[in-house]
């Protein structure tokens, strides 16, 4: 790969693209890796290892940058986040032990299918009223997970009840294993799990996923750093751009209609699902 840019041009372009990744990531509860990795590898010719290292940095930047606002505005359900982090961190540890045991190829195919199916369910339920007709869940009662948030788009405070805590924990455990093994897709699995199984409002799911992904990524960042896969020259413009984008995006989430957030999420989910299936197909 021959380079046709100066380091200054590289930093400038990467910074601008990363702003977009930060906005999208903060709105959808994803880490922005879906933009950062293809951009760095395909367009900028960066080595895949450095691209993944930079995307881990991008996940933490999106998470901390957006969560500062979401926690203050009560969009994040911190109790749900803490309970589910139990499952994701256990899953990440399990994933570390399973590395090399499970064929990565089938993992990509399985999760491509799972994410595609989740996108379908979320699309069909996109007009569902939030926080209504929720089945009682004793565990959610005991853990006091129910809460409310102020929805700027409708000008209403929306009280919601949480259900399916056990199923949510199982799904988060699996999400933890997958992100431990593949290093991607943790947010893409977390949001549908909270949305479909636990019936959290989409904005709360997104903000809570945002809050959680930083912790999971920080755990793996240590490994990438020790392996020398976090190149400071690649990571710096990504980090600064994503922080600017996530801060801006976190001001937008409240104002956008929930149906829109769901629709954008479904489209992005289908794209990730396709990416995973292709990776699985090519081996």
């Amino acid at each position: 790969m021959s380079f046709t840019m100066t380091p200054l041009e590289f930093s400038g372009i990467t910074f601008c693209v990363s702003i977009g990744a930060g906005v999208l990531g903060s709105l959808l509860g994803l880490g922005g890796g879906i933009i950062i990795i293809p951009f760095l590898t395909l367009l900028m010719g960066i080595d895949i290892h450095y691209a993944v290292g930079a995307s881990i940095v991008s996940v933490i930047a999106t998470s901390s940058g957006a969560a500062a606002a979401y926690v203050r505005e009560r969009m994040t359900n911190m109790r749900v986040a803490m309970v589910l982090e139990l499952a994701t961190t256990t899953g990440a540890l399990t994933g570390a032990y399973l590395a090399g045991v499970i064929p990565v190829r089938w993992l990509y195919i399985t999760f491509g299918v799972v994410l595609g199916y989740s996108a379908l369910i979320m699309y069909r339920k996109r007009h569902q009223k939030e926080g209504e007709d929720v089945a009682p869940d004793a565990l959610a009662d005991w853990l006091r997970l129910h809460d409310s948030y102020f929805d700027e788009a409708t000008g209403k405070t929306i009280a919601y009840r949480v259900t399916g805590t056990k199923l949510g924990l199982v799904l988060m455990y699996i999400a933890g294993i997958v992100s431990g093994l593949l290093g991607i897709g943790s947010g893409a699995l977390k949001v549908p799990a909270m949305d479909i199984a636990m019936r959290l409002p989409i904005k709360v799911s997104s903000a809570t996923s945002n809050f959680m992904i930083g912790v999971t990524a920080a755990a793996s960042a240590g490994v990438y750093f020790a392996r020398g896969e976090i190149d400071p020259f690649v990571a710096a413009p990504v980090m600064v751009g994503v922080l600017v984008g996530a801060t801006a995006g976190s001001k937008l989430l409240g104002k956008i209609n929930s149906v829109w957030i769901r629709t954008i999420f479904v489209v992005v989910l289908l794209y990730i699902s396709l990416q995973m299936l292709l990776k699985g197909a090519h081996g």
Binding site: V57, I60, A61, S63, S64, G214, V215, A217, A218, A221, G222, F225, I230, P232, F233, A235, A236, M239
Partner: peptide, 18 residues
């Protein structure tokens, strides 16, 4: 570049500290 890494370490430490 070493100072950049120090900044990245601060970033990584933030969620753990949280």
């Amino acid at each position: 570049q070493a100072i950049v890494i120090v900044g990245l370490v601060f970033l990584i430490a933030t969620p753990v500290l949280r």
